[in-house]
């Protein structure tokens, strides 16, 4: 298995997940907000976008597993660790600030978005320290 194959699969999986994510957002909004779907059907519809975001983590895990180049694997893992640190630190600190009414409420689905931005920070860190970004996003 070559480096290129793992990356191509990564891009394909990510494109499929993002396409389903965008479609599910529109469908959930239309059926729940406009058509008044409720109950278990609404729960299932509202869960799909979140599950698509969860798929990003699975896709990245597959990239790390399938990448045959050990140096690139290291770069991806460093990006993931940095992104996780940023997102979980942000969620923890913001959560307590929210608890004491010092900051406005942020919907929980923003934290995975922060995590994805964190992989960009991880890429910059890789570039500065290892000479190449790794670029798993």
């Amino acid at each position: 298995m070559t480096t290129g194959h793992a990356k191509r699969r990564y891009h394909l999986r990510m494109a499929v997940a993002m396409a389903i994510y965008i479609a599910s957002l529109f469908v959930a909004d239309w059926l729940i907000e406009d058509r008044g779907v409720t109950g278990i059907a609404a729960v299932m519809l509202a869960s799909v976008p979140g599950l698509c975001v969860a798929a990003i983590f699975w896709i990245l895990a597959r990239l790390v597993i399938e990448e045959s180049d050990e140096f690139l694997r290291l770069l991806y893992i460093r990006q993931i660790i940095i992104a996780t640190g940023i997102a979980l630190t942000g969620a923890s600190v913001w959560g307590f600030l929210e608890l004491y009414m010092l900051v406005p409420h942020i919907d929980a689905y923003w934290w995975p978005v922060i995590w994805c931005l964190g992989t960009g920070v991880g890429g910059i860190y890789n570039k500065l320290t290892m000479g190449t970004s790794g670029n798993c996003t």
Partner: peptide
């Protein structure tokens, strides 16, 4: 492997 790997190894990173 990738060219980046060779470069990182060669430069001792």
């Amino acid at each position: 492997v990738s060219r980046q790997s060779v470069n990182a190894i060669e430069t001792g990173k």
